[in-house]
Design a protein around this nucleic acid. Sequence first.
DNA 1: TTGACGGGTGTACGGCGTACACCTACCGTG
DNA 2: CACGGTAGGTGTACGCCGTACACCCGTCAA
Lengths: 233, 233
Amino acid sequence: MVEMTTQAGSATRPRAPLNKERVLAAAVALADEGGVDALSMRKIAQVLGVVPMALYKHVANKNELLDGMIDVLVAEIDPPVGDTDWKTAVRRRVLSARRMLLRHPWAPEVIESRIKARTTPTPAVMEYLDSMIGIFRAGGFSIDLVHHAMHVMGSRLLGFSQELFEDTSDREPDPDAMPPEEMAARYPHITELAMAVAHDQESVVGSGCDDQFEFEFALDLTLDGLERLHGTG
Amino acid sequence: MVEMTTQAGSATRPRAPLNKERVLAAAVALADEGGVDALSMRKIAQVLGVVPMALYKHVANKNELLDGMIDVLVAEIDPPVGDTDWKTAVRRRVLSARRMLLRHPWAPEVIESRIKARTTPTPAVMEYLDSMIGIFRAGGFSIDLVHHAMHVMGSRLLGFSQELFEDTSDREPDPDAMPPEEMAARYPHITELAMAVAHDQESVVGSGCDDQFEFEFALDLTLDGLERLHGTG
DNA sequence: TTGACGGGTGTACGGCGTACACCTACCGTG
DNA sequence: CACGGTAGGTGTACGCCGTACACCCGTCAA
């Protein structure tokens, strides 16, 4: 056997060069088959035929890896369809999200834990929420009603159970947070909603919306629906 | 300084004897102040002034500890009130559950992960669900409607986002599972519901209910409610 | 007196995330 | 052509984790 060529040994397996996408794909595959407990940097490295520390040239740490995995999942959700009423558009999108969640049963737990730890959801999640808001707006919903609607849909949108936007004003600001103008450009609907809510109540800047009210709003909407089906009251 | 008495050194702090409740309480307190990531057997032992392995005389392992912590939380939910209509009874109970979840923000993530790993929720959770079903039944709901209602309420009942009872027929049976007759005695409403669902569809024993149908049922109930508020369609 | 046993201890192992120093192949520039 | 920078893979090492296993001691029934 002659000596190796300049590009990657031919005696060993050629091994395509690593990159963030390949790392994330391997991580998602590993989680799919063994659950999130079976996911470790060392195992990911192993299936990629690489030493564990090599991964850190492509993801900063395990938390960023988890964030990246969430983005991969969100990208699997079908984009919104254009030419229908809001109701079927929302319906299709949510059912598509559900199919994604069924393919990746570990997702809700990871999304839950990561959302609690970050000040802002990942860009992909933001985009998803923004376009969902856009569907309601295009359907003629008032900004207030959209706000309530998003809270009501909460757990069906991505599996997270409590608030989408918790009060993050007490956490120290993310060093590389997005400037407001870019925020407004990238997520117009979220921005519109956030502004309206902030205006609505002249409270201190921060939390923005009354989570307790939103929870009860959603609860009562559900109970009223059940009552109607039951035919009492 | 003289020698110690027979019952616990008096020079060191007396240190009450350990038991499962004290272990669980310490674990919950630790999670409350540092999140679930800050929870480790070693830290629990430390705050209890004991060596890590001592905990294992009271809980089998960390998973059982987590299950026990969930039970502690569920016990914090107010018991159902008797003399009102179903709607306010459910409303109060769910709001009480929400207050508990707000006190323990780490709870949804833990409940999520533990429910996925067990064949049956812990007894305390079962009891909670059973009594919730009982409220609907006492309100005159048909067993089918209760079934749908529980799915609809899903994420608001305890923060779990997907199915309460996933298909566990593929998992090897829990060695110390509860015999059916005890099941029926302890959780009469759950049993009634499970029987009805199993009868309903003459499918193989197992999963029992059509999760996809239930998801869409809940989704449509929500969308219809929003539509009514919006005044279109 | 003894022997079982409930409950706290000590040691040790394998796995984890990751800091840090290194090495090497490549590239644009002089 | 020489050369320094840089991107990306390597190796070692540290401190934390859960927990298996052997031990030890105080209590109490026989």
